[in-house]
């Protein structure tokens, strides 16, 4: 079980990630928020971390540069085309076999 946050700067900073990730209960959140209202230094840390996390998350959402995406799409097309050839060949072989069987059946 997590120890209660005593309200000091040290304890506050130790729990800051859990706070920002929404992992603390309502009472623990209130303790942190109360502390930040009276401690500009800790409030600045919380705000700074929020901006940092936001920046990382936005970077993760950004689409890759066009040349990278183009190369990726080309690789996919090449792979799927290469995989399609044996399947088509298999289909052609099966059709030939069916025709042969049909001819044999007609003669008998």
């Amino acid at each position: 079980m997590r120890r209660a946050i005593d309200g000091g700067c040290g304890a506050m900073l130790a729990h800051i990630s859990a706070y920002l990730d929404g992992e603390l209960d309502a009472a623990e959140c209130s303790t942190i928020e109360r502390h930040c209202r009276t401690c500009p230094r800790c409030a600045a840390v919380v705000d700074g971390l929020r901006r940092t996390i936001g920046l990382c998350r936005n970077a993760g959402k950004a689409p890759l540069p066009d040349p990278v995406r183009r190369r990726a799409r080309q690789s996919i097309r090449r792979l799927l085309a290469a995989e399609a050839i044996p399947r088509k060949a298999d289909g052609a072989t099966a059709r030939r076999s069916r025709r042969r069987r049909g001819r044999r059946g007609g003669r008998s």
Partner: peptide
């Protein structure tokens, strides 16, 4: 104590 999901950050798309 009951844990709550607090929206201190915008929800992640994860």
């Amino acid at each position: 104590m009951t844990k709550t999901r607090n929206a201190h950050l915008s929800p992640k798309a994860g």
